[in-house]
Nucleic acid binder design. Structure first.
Length: 893
RNA sequence: GCGGUCGUGGCGGAAUUGGUAGACGCGCAGCGUUGAGGUCGCUGUCCUGGAAACAGGGUGGAAGUUCGAGUCUUCUCGACCGCACCA
């Protein structure tokens, strides 16, 4: 009994593919194009099997589509700028460029080792000036087009490292490395105007029907469109007016106070003369806005003493508070509070003794009678209706308050004023919204307005290992763009990491330049771009990776958009939203013609693995775990261990399985098979030793089936034996022959829909049938060969090395990588006879074999003759018989 | 709090989209091969009763629609994910 020698075979075929250029994409041609792309990796070190799943999923699609006759583009590159390289530089005294280059080398080798069918001619790294010079040009064009601008913004500032931190790098309010409490600082930063496209990005989600609903929903929520109104309140004793935003203008008659953010300009102005207010504001800032702080923090306010005049009721004045729950980042940083219909506002007024005035009663439309009103529970819950905020639609209705007892208020005027707008009749919330907005517009103190949660994208980073922002600061001329002819602005290589902060700012000469406008002394911008900028256009660069311009128009028009994009769900908003925006911005600046970069998206699940931890809570490698009396202990010191849950593979949890270990021991195809077959691609997959062995076992079964057939194999040129073309009768060879065609049809469909696990199950099922076919006649010999050849082609995308080797041994000269996908004969996919279930009152009582598409009467008659049916009927009269052709007969008694 | 996804054997998961629940694999058990272990081969494996034929039960729970529900509807319990003082 022989074993499959994966080592020799895998190296052999990788060399052949390379020599023959099997995976080179042509930038034109008669075949339809298909662009498959996996989210390109950050070169962080070595790959573990968890990383490979993403690439394996894409590789199956690429090989499958190639076999189906598409002109496939399947490239790979490196998202090479980023913080880890700088950290490595500080920790190991190695230059970020050097560290990155070495990781790219290692990871590139590893990807070749698992047989990914990339067009390596298109490889690039984003840290190369040949790449980022185009990015700098794009930024200049965006600046010109008003899509890039500079403004002061609040940022997370690490006072020890002297740098801005991204939100993700702030853990429990402290810098992730320094451990120092992070401060809020106002800094001048560069922004990209993504909000310009908020509406378009939102509306176009609708058409992304090959994206997961989950991702589409997340983007919708992230953009967060709210429709409502702006309204202005006159302030007593001041010239200013206070502008607020509300999605519920219909509740304006329930307003009992106004509140502004601690960061509101008015707050700032007032605290100059009010030290108590200044203290309150400082207290709010100290608490911060972390999730934890928000959950525990009480609603707090400080009465400014100002009074705001109600926009409709001239004699009603509302107290103006500075309140800790009002965010400057949303709306106008000021609100009116309607405690009757907003839980948060209610909490607030309970604390400060302000009145509650209900104005609507969802979901029924009505004017409440006095007795009904009195019966309302005096609860602490606001009656909030669930009207959507993204439109002016509403669910509930506004009512006219007639009850006097409930309006025990310092603002008695309300009781009768509501009628001015609603005519004393109940009014649908949506009508009330429109009516209030119309009235505001009439009076000139408000208007309809749309607001978004989405903020402009801050792209400045005080970091070295990134793309320099091509701008110059001149004392005389202000901000001056670097002339396009001076691009690229290259990162200097001679930098030191001994001082805290940005090495670019410390560099002795780099930042000093002559102003391009006036020629005077000026300084370069020392911030670099957020690395999400590089990943926002790399997919288009793959179309013409060596072009002088960012894109060769013909190539990018031919290939874009990406037909199938594959990556992790963690980029549902970040990278995927930035790229959608960037593509639109590039279109506006004339770079390309598409708007949506990714026509199809697949988000794959994580690869998880068991975890163990010791008594001190430290993680332990699975290979250091020994079982003693069924209890896991540390192999070295027998310390008892805790079995953790399945966690995403990572170095830090010590549960990552190195790719090379698996490839060394079992080969690339075994790893690929397990990664592709054990779970559906969009779900998590557990990597286990028994899973690896199971996959390895199947590879060997296939190997033996093809190289040591149990019985005679027909020659390559043998003609189809008589009778098989009709595929009639019940000979074992015939049923295997039919199953073969069903398998081809099923696998083709499964691969198209990413049902890889089912495709593998089908192939295994057919393998079982083929193994069981032991006749030595012409038909069996012929089916055996046809079956082997088909299986070999079907596993081609999944286990490409084994497939190639078997294909060659079956006598083929041309590699599978250049061989067309098998096609099922539709006549053989459907059986001549079908097994029909026979139920009595919905319970299965028998099955009958019937000719395909037998008429209903025949099916009914056959069903009623079954023993099981007669037994179940037990002489009861048949009331009705339902016949579903080729499926089921249900006898109702 | 709001929004979403999902609950099927010991485990990963199938189920032609309303029509024979548990394909395929892992694991487990028995037998064979082997000097032994592993490999490999065969057989069995949802639960209960039964030697078997067969009967009854069964897709987190409760109800409903239907000739028929894992699939649709409502409620409920649980797990996971996203957003969150968003006006």
């Amino acid at each position: 009994m022989s074993r499959y020698n994966f080592k020799q075979t895998e190296a052999k075929w990788q060399a052949i593919w390379e020599d023959r250029g099997c995976f080179k994409a042509a930038d034109a041609g008669v075949r339809p194009k298909y662009y498959v792309l996996e989210m390109f990796p950050y070169p962080s070190g070595r790959l573990h099997v968890g990383h490979v799943r993403n690439y394996a999923i894409g590789d199956v699609m690429a090989r499958f589509k190639r076999a189906q006759g598409y002109n496939v583009l399947h490239p790979m590159g490196w998202d090479a700028f980023g913080l880890p390289a700088e950290n490595a530089a500080i920790a190991n005294k190695v230059h970020p460029a050097e560290w990155t280059r070495e990781n790219i080398r290692i990871m590139g080798e590893q990807l070749r080792l698992v047989g990914m069918s990339y067009d390596w001619d298109r490889e690039f790294a984003t840290c190369s000036p040949d790449y980022y010079r185009h990015e700098q040009k794009m930024f200049l064009d965006f600046y010109e087009a008003g899509l890039a601008y500079r403004k002061e913004a609040w940022v997370n500032w690490d006072p020890v490292e002297n740098t801005v931190l991204a939100n993700e790098q702030v853990i429990d309010g402290r810098g992730w490395r320094s451990g120092a409490p992070v401060e809020k600082r106002k800094l001048s930063q560069w922004f990209l105007r993504i909000t310009e496209y908020a509406d378009d990005l939102l509306a176009a989600i609708e058409a992304l029907n090959r994206w997961p609903d989950r991702v589409r929903l997340m983007q919708e929520k992230w953009i967060g469109r709210s429709v409502g109104a702006h309204m202005q309140f006159d302030l007593s004793g001041r010239d200013d007016r206070l502008e607020v935003f509300s999605t519920r203008p219909d509740t304006i008659f329930g307003a009992t106070f106004c509140a502004i953010s601690p960061d509101h300009p008015l707050t700032e102005a007032l605290s100059a003369d009010d030290s108590a207010l200044a203290d309150f504001v400082a207290e709010c800032r100290r608490l911060g806005t972390s999730e934890e702080a928000i959950e525990t923090a009480e609603k707090q306010g400080h009465d400014t003493g100002l009074r705001a005049r109600h926009p409709f009721l001239a004699d009603v004045e509302l107290p103006v508070y500075v309140a800790n729950f009002v965010l400057m980042e949303y709306g106008t940083g000021a609100i009116f509070g309607c405690p009757g219909h907003d839980q948060r506002d209610l909490d607030f007024v309970r604390k400060y003794g302000l009145p509650v005035i209900p104005v609507l009663w969802p979901p029924t439309a009505r004017v409440l009678s006095d007795s009904e009103f009195a019966a309302l529970p005096a609860s602490d819950r606001a009656r909030v209706d669930q009207s959507p905020h993204c439109t002016l639609d509403g669910l509930g209705e506004v009512f006219h308050i007639t009850n006097t007892a409930y309006t025990n208020t310092t603002l008695p005027a309300y009781r009768y004023r509501l009628g001015a707008l609603v005519d004393g009749q109940p009014l649908a919330v949506s009508d009330a919204k429109h009516r209030v907005i119309a009235a505001l517009e009439d009076r000139g103190n408000g208007a309809a307005a749309v607001r978004y949660r989405l903020r402009d994208w801050g792209v400045s980073r005080q970091r070295y290992w990134g793309c320099p922002i091509p701008m110059i600061h001149c004392a005389a001329c202000g901000v001056v763009p670097v002339p396009a002819s001076d691009l690229p602005v290259e990162l200097p290589m001679d930098v030191g990491f001994d001082k805290p902060g940005n090495p670019l700012a410390h560099h002795p000469t780099w930042k000093h330049v002559a102003c391009p406008r006036c020629g005077g002394a000026a300084e370069r911008e020392t911030d670099t771009f957020d690395t999400f900028v590089e990943s926002s256009w790399y997919f288009a660069r793959f179309c013409s990776p060596t072009a002088d311009k960012a894109f060769d128009r013909k190539a990018v028009d031919y290939w874009m958009p990406v037909d199938q994009y594959i990556g992790g769900i963690e980029h549902a908003v970040l990278h995927l939203l930035y790229s959608r925006f960037f593509t639109r911005a590039l279109k506006k600046c004339g770079y390309l013609t598409v708007e949506e970069p990714f026509a199809g998206l697949m988000t794959q699940g994580m690869v998880v693995h068991e975890t163990y931890s010791d008594p001190s809570g430290d993680w332990v490698y699975p290979e250091d775990v020994a079982m003693r009396d069924g209890v896991p202990v540390h192999a070295a010191d027998a310390a008892p261990l805790t079995v953790g849950r399945l966690e995403k593979m990572s170095k830090s949890k010590k549960n990552a399985v190195g790719l090379e270990n698996v490839v060394e021991e079992y080969g690339a195809d075994t790893a690929r098979l397990l990664l592709l077959s054990d779970s559906p691609p969009d779900r998590d997959l557990e990597w286990s030793d028994s899973g690896v062995e199971g996959a390895w076992r199947y590879l060997n079964r296939l190997w033996r089936l093809a190289t040591e057939p149990k019985a005679r194999l027909a020659g390559r040129d043998a003609s189809m034996p008589n009778g098989l073309d009709q595929a009639t009768g019940y000979a074992p060879a015939v049923s295997v022959w039919r199953l073969l065609h069903k398998t081809i049809a099923g696998v083709t469909e499964d691969l198209d829909r990413f049902h890889y696990n089912r495709a593998v199950a089908r192939i295994r099922e057919f393998t079982n049938a083929l193994e069981g076919l032991d006749g030595d006649d012409d038909q069996a010999a012929w089916v055996r060969r046809a079956g082997l050849e088909a299986v070999t082609r079907l596993i081609g995308p999944i286990m490409p090395h084994l497939a190639e080797e078997l294909w060659q041994r079956l006598g083929h000269d041309q590699p599978i990588a250049e061989t067309a996908w098998p096609v099922a004969d539709p006549a053989l996919v459907v059986d001549e006879t079908v097994t029909v279930a026979v139920q009595v009152n919905g319970k299965l009582r028998a099955t009958i074999e019937l000719p395909r598409d037998a008429d209903k009467a025949a099916a009914e008659q056959a069903a009623l003759e079954q023993d099981g049916v007669l037994r179940a009927l037990d002489g009861k009269p048949v009331r009705k018989v339902i016949v579903v052709p080729n499926r089921v007969v249900n006898v109702v008694a």
